[in-house]
Amino acid sequence: MAQYILRRILYMIPTLIAISIVTFVVISIPPGDFVDQLVTQARMTGEVISLEEEEGMRMQYGLGASLPEQYLRWVSAIATRGDFGISFRLNLPVSQLVSERLGLTFLLSLSSMLFIWAIAIPIGVYSAVRRYSPGDTMATFIAFVGVAIPDFLIALVLLYVSFRYFGQSVGGLFSPEFVEAPWSLARVGDFLSHLWIPMVVLSIGGIASLIRTLRANMLDELRRPYVTTARTKGLPEWWLIIKYPLRHALNPFVSSLNDVFVNLVSGATIVSVVLSLQTMGPMLLEALRNQDAFLAGGTLLLLSVLAVIGTLFSDILLAWLDPRIRFR
């Protein structure tokens, strides 16, 4: 097992390198750069920036060098010093801007995932075991609808309902007085009281799709001979369902887990914009719009790393669940 994890972690290194390249390329695709943007803005206000000044700024921001050179400089700074550069627009180190949002994104994704599990597993199992019962029909239908509704639409409807009928805004992860406050017990409490709405919104799609996957997997597994064997052994039905088909059904479930996690990490982007959450997504969008290259690159890179770490965990979980993978 330890060997497997080690190998799996080693495999992450080429993946991370590839991710940094992809990120950098994506950030560099848009024609022009931040300086161009400044120049355009300046021109609109009537200022004139000379070519020399432009070049000076490029040098200052390190935008003058060739792309591979820029990439190497960027990556080595991150790898050696954890220095993600500075945000051109806000003139603050990227790491400082990102750090709290990264944590919040992670917390939000993690809690959503746990919530998805807590809801989807029992419903999926029930749905499969009591196939064609009214409960199953209902769960199946809800799952279908849940998959079909875009999460930002749920967020919008929620916004509308709470505004219209409760007269309050549900946006944000903190009450206004806590947004800038340092962490304290009260702030944690405030965070938790705000957390559940985005969590539920983010989870609905995941819950729906996992109910469908789990139900289909369970139906396959319930027909397998080892279930009959377990019955002939005289095990209680509930016990054998948990021990055999459920655990088998969880295998494909867990291997699709990284997709779920990746989706959560990234799906949070759009919902966050709607609910104005202080997560990575809105910042990324903002940075992209302004060609704030280092901020966008750092954000994208960290989101990707988060996703890769999620994949790692799901693989480890899978290996723990399924000895066949460990022994391979």
């Binding site: 993946t15 990234s266 990324l284 994208l300 989101l303 988060l306 996703a307 890769v308």
Partner: peptide
């Protein structure tokens, strides 16, 4: 393994 939505956005 890449997060798709941020990539789309980018």
């Amino acid at each position: 393994s890449l997060p798709s939505i941020p990539l789309w956005i980018a």
